[in-house]
Design a protein around this nucleic acid. Structure first.
Length: 925
RNA sequence: GCCCGGGUGGUGAAAUCGGUAGACACACCGGACUUAAAAUCCGGAGCCGCGAGGCGUGCGGGUUCGAGUCCCGCUCCGGGCACCA
């Protein structure tokens, strides 16, 4: 850092590599890449330790699930991370880029069921294969830090932390709702529920409540929300998604006392509402099927019992619950309105869920769309109590009160209904403004108040009666971490008849997951293994039972980024090295993790901070969310209305004379296939491109270059075989240029330092200006993580250098040498192998890994005359050339004097002339 | 259903602050080299029009001297929705 022309101060090749074989004319990626990778290996080039002298840079890509082999999404993710890592290193940072394996999860169990392979063996085999693939791609990873979450060395610390958080009360047990497959007698993931049925058994899925452990993430809700404002280098969309997910709402908890005539045991029904101003418009309450009041009603009435049973059907995924038909049933039970004292009927509704909030809602059909739909369907009364704000403006008078709210209602309010006549149900349709804030009517003493004032008044009155108060509620729910699965981290708890729930003491950790196990897809394997669950109580020593649930695999990925700093520590979860490396400076991964993984990691970092394990509060300082990799799909209609998906590699396309695709055919039989559109690469659509085949054919650098060039990192990337060809062609041209010129480039090095300030022939000055303009742009784009245009800039530089006359004197050689050294350094993070070898061949100094990032020379960029676009009335009509330093008046004069201006001004006088320096002149007439 | 994105030539994309729309590529067309092909190199091109010119950034409005960019309304496509990871 710091020099203006750094990186090649000494003109001779370094003496420690004397045996360079004669440079090959043809670009052979496998030779180039093997040579570079062997060099890095022998130098231990990516092994890093803590170094207080240099600024640290921790660059992390989301670790992969070892599913078998790398897919293109992985290649994209790790290429982006590697590009950032390598550039940071060239900028002088002490860079750590680790890698590991998110090794617990369902696919291993599914593979076990299908192929009868134990999950552990399957997983370790996949890891070995995928590690080889990562190495072949040339990522600058410090493999000494590799970890796999399925090893006891890793998960023992997860269990250890669990016991700490459990004793602290940050982990607790309660009932949670899961998808139950009654045929396979097993809990299903949402993904395993297809159209309400179990994916293997086909049985109708039911909701079932089981005891589970929860992490109290809501204890940090406020902090997780407000700290988003301290993450300037996170994408705004991710922060917004997290804000909405946490969903802080300020509202009022309202208690509806039970009507003793219908609910003799007494009590109150609690609901939370953000719209207490509509309380006087509540016409019924609805409770979940699992709510005690629903059970009470079901016990007395078979019809209600049948409905409650019906509500159990179906899965628990919110998307399904939100789109299903809203259904309910009336009960004879009533609660008392806390202000009016009226009796409100209690309904049981399928869209109210026990796990969310209090399992009960107050319904205000006039001002909530879902309640409106429900009330319409069941002919429940609708009582309007708010004049929407935008209407209020028209009818309000100066006093701020309505003179005659009831008269107003008759004139303007379209939704008026009474309980006693069908005619009253003829309200007009729902309008979005009904849900807006406004002024209160039809509400007795609150009439005329604005919504916000009414909320205050009603909350005050409720508090005075002891029937409610203001409170903050979060949409965020505590994190249920229990899984009734085998291939996960065992939950370190023991159940003793006498001592109750006991966490496993430190000296008995880890609770090791047995690896010889039979997976059948029915029930939980660990619960069938007495040798696992039979144990002694750590308290009293009497026989006890071990917990057989395992943890959500999101738990492992919530702290792995800290463990990379000290993966070998067998006596502590974290040590001083964590303080050096944490937090991660740059995190790279898919946008699909925008909420869950990233929120859990933020929560865990805080929980660990409060345990004194790290000083960091936020885990990831900068975040880059990469887009998906998509590809064309092709299919043929098969029997039974199904589609037979055909891999793009087996298809050729027909084009018309303008290059438009008009048809596609299967290579094997030449007959047409249907073009199915562009979709995310997946097994099910058979449109994946295998990275392995790609690397074997073109080499890692071509794969990396294409991935970087084809789209900016945060957008989706459309796969294109011919685009890959183009990338390969470019690297061949780079190689050819280096080969043709490498001797001359070496000669040019001596003259380099003198280039600035020297009067060059115009042709050379133009080339040099182009090179430095591209460099300036590329460095700017790098800072924005817009790597596709960095790749473009590299291509432009090569185009410019190729225009120069071949070796033609010192000056030409110096311009070429400087340009090529800039080109190689721009390429070094993206295509490190070819950059490494050419850097060496051309005699540039040292290892390009540590060459400094080039800086654009202002001297090279200088221009005497510039071209300005000429507009007349905002339309482009020509251009003028002026001195770069020309004053405004002269530019105006030149513009008005131009032929184009004369032609299009039509003899009219100029009303105004707008000059945008360096860009354009607009004459308005 | 709710939350968050996106839509620019035949295709992927570029355009830093509201200032030359389409850089750089792919595909296509033409040419050179070749016995021929491949590879390579050179050139062309947004659309309409013979041309002057007109029209163009999903659709409809608006603000501005000037809008891909800002505002309002729509539409289509994608991601997430708490047990896929």
């Amino acid at each position: 850092m710091g020099h203006s022309v750094p990186g090649y101060n000494r003109p001779l090749p370094p003496p420690h590599c004397p045996e360079i074989a004669p440079m090959q004319e043809r670009y052979k990626p496998e030779d180039v890449e093997t040579a570079a990778q062997q060099h890095w290996e022998s130098e231990q080039a990516f092994h890093v330790t803590e170094d207080r002298e240099r600024p640290k840079y921790y660059c992390l890509s989301m670790f992969p699930y070892p599913s078998g082999k790398l897919h293109m999404g992985h290649v994209r993710n790790y290429t982006i991370g590697d590009v950032i890592s390598r550039q940071a290193r060239m900028q002088g940072f002490n860079v750590m880029q680790p890698m590991g394996w998110d090794a617990f999860g369902m696919p291993a169990e599914n593979a076990a069921i299908q192929n009868n392979v134990p999950p552990a063996r399957w997983t370790y085999a996949n890891i070995a294969y995928m590690k080889g693939q990562l190495q072949r791609l040339g990522f600058g990873i410090d493999w000494s830090r590799e970890l796999a979450t399925c090893t006891p060395e890793y998960y023992r610390w997860e269990q250890w932390l669990f016991t700490r958080l459990y004793r602290k009360g940050l982990i607790y047990k309660k009932l949670g709702t899961v998808n139950w497959d009654p045929v396979d007698e097993t809990v299903l993931a949402n993904e395993q529920v297809i159209d309400g049925r179990g994916w293997r058994s086909g049985a109708e899925v039911e909701k079932r409540e089981i005891p589970m452990y929860y992490m109290k993430i809501t204890a940090y809700a406020d902090e997780l929300l407000s700290a988003l404002d301290d993450l300037p280098d996170w994408p705004e969309q991710v922060k917004q998604m997290q804000r909405n997910w946490i969903g802080r709402s300020d509202g009022v908890e309202v208690h509806f006392p039970y009507d003793l005539a219908t609910i003799p045991k007494g009590g109150v029904l609690k609901v939370f509402t953000t719209r207490a101003d509509t309380l006087m418009g509540a016409t019924y309450v609805a409770v979940a099927a699992e709510h005690p009041l629903a059970r009470l009603a079901a016990d007395a009435d078979p019809a209600i019992a049948a409905f409650v049973d019906q509500c159990v059907k179906g899965g628990v995924a919110e998307a399904d619950l939100a789109t299903m038909e809203k259904k309910g049933i009336a009960t004879p039970l009533r609660v008392v309105h806390p202000i009016s004292g009226e009796y409100l009927p209690v309904w049981v509704a399928n869209y109210v869920l026990m796990g969310y909030g209090e399992g009960a809602v107050m319904a205000v059909p006039a001002h909530d769309e879902r309640d409106f739909v429900f009330a319409t369907q069941y002919r429940l009364p609708i009582k309007p109590v708010i004049i929407p704000g935008k209407w209020g403006q028209q009818v309000d008078n100066a006093s701020g009160f309505f003179e005659d709210p009831s008269a107003l209602l008759k004139r303007n309010f379209p939704i008026v209904a009474r309980r006693d006549s069908d005619e009253s149900l003829a309200w007009s349709h729902w309008q979005d403004c009904f849900a807006e804030l406004g002024r209160v009517v039809n509400s007795g003493k609150y009439d005329g108040l604005r919504s916000s004032a009414a909320v205050d008044a009603i909350a005050t009155d409720l508090a005075a009666k002891g029937l409610g108060s203001k409170r903050v509620q979060y949409r965020l729910r505590d994190w249920g971490i229990s899984r009734q699965r085998y291939w996960g981290c065992p939950i370190p708890m023991i159940y003793c008849k006498d001592c109750g729930d006991v966490s496993v003491p430190d000296e008995h950790l880890p609770v090791v997951l047995p690896e010889d196990v039979e997976i059948t897809g029915r029930g939980s394997p660990l619960a069938r293994m007495p040798e696992f669950f039979e144990c002694d109580c750590p308290n009293c020593g009497r026989p006890a039972r071990r917990e057989t649930d395992t943890m959500d695999t999101f738990v492992e990925s919530s702290w792995y980024f800290l463990r990379y700093a000290c993966p070998d520590n067998a006596s502590a979860m974290a040590d001083h090295r964590v303080d050096y490396w944490a937090p991660v400076d740059q995190y790279v991964g898919g946008i699909e993790h925008a909420i869950l993984h990233l929120l859990y990691a933020r929560f865990f970092t805080r929980a660990m901070r409060d345990e004194g394990l790290t000083a960091a509060t936020e885990p990831f300082t900068r975040l880059l969310t990469q887009g998906m990799v998509v590809a064309e799909t092709y299919y043929r209609d098969a029997s039974g209305g199904k589609k037979q998906w055909i891999n793009p590699a087996e298809v050729t396309v027909d084009r018309d004379d303008k290059g438009r695709i008009v048809a596609a055919r299967l290579v094997a039989d030449g007959a047409p296939v249907v073009i199915g559109g562009t979709e995310k690469m997946s097994k099910s659509k058979n449109n994946g491109v295998d990275p392995q085949a790609l690397v074997e054919r073109y080499g890692a650098d071509t794969a990396r270059f294409f991935i970087i060039f084809a789209a900016p990192p945060d957008q989706q990337l459309e796969w294109s075989d011919s685009g890959v060809e183009g990338a390969f062609r470019f690297l061949k041209r780079v190689w050819a240029f280096g080969h043709r010129r490498h001797a001359a480039l070496g000669d040019g090095l001596a003259a380099l330092a003198a280039l600035d300030g020297r009067e060059l022939p115009a042709a050379l000055a133009d080339i040099r200006r182009e090179v430095h303009a591209c460099l300036k742009q590329a460095t700017y784009d790098f800072g924005k993580h817009q790597f596709n245009t960095v790749a473009s800039a590299a291509m432009k530089i090569l185009n410019a250098l190729e225009k120069a006359p071949d070796v033609d004197g010192d000056e030409a050689a110096a311009v070429a040498a400087e340009g090529f050294s800039i080109l190689l350094r721009l390429l070094a993070p993206i295509t490190p192998h070819i950059a490494h070898v050419l850097w060496q061949e051309c005699g540039f100094d040292g290892d390009i890994l540590d060459a400094s990032w080039p800086e654009a020379s202002e001297d090279a960029l200088k221009q005497d005359r510039v071209e300005l676009m000429l507009q007349v009335n905002g339309k482009l009509r020509g251009s003028i050339r002026v001195d770069a330093e020309a004053p405004r008046a002269e530019i105006e004069r030149a513009a008005l004097a131009s032929d184009a201006a004369a032609k299009f001004m039509d003899g009219k006088p100029a009303k105004k002339v707008i000059v945008v320096p360096g860009r354009l002149v607009n004459v308005v007439c």
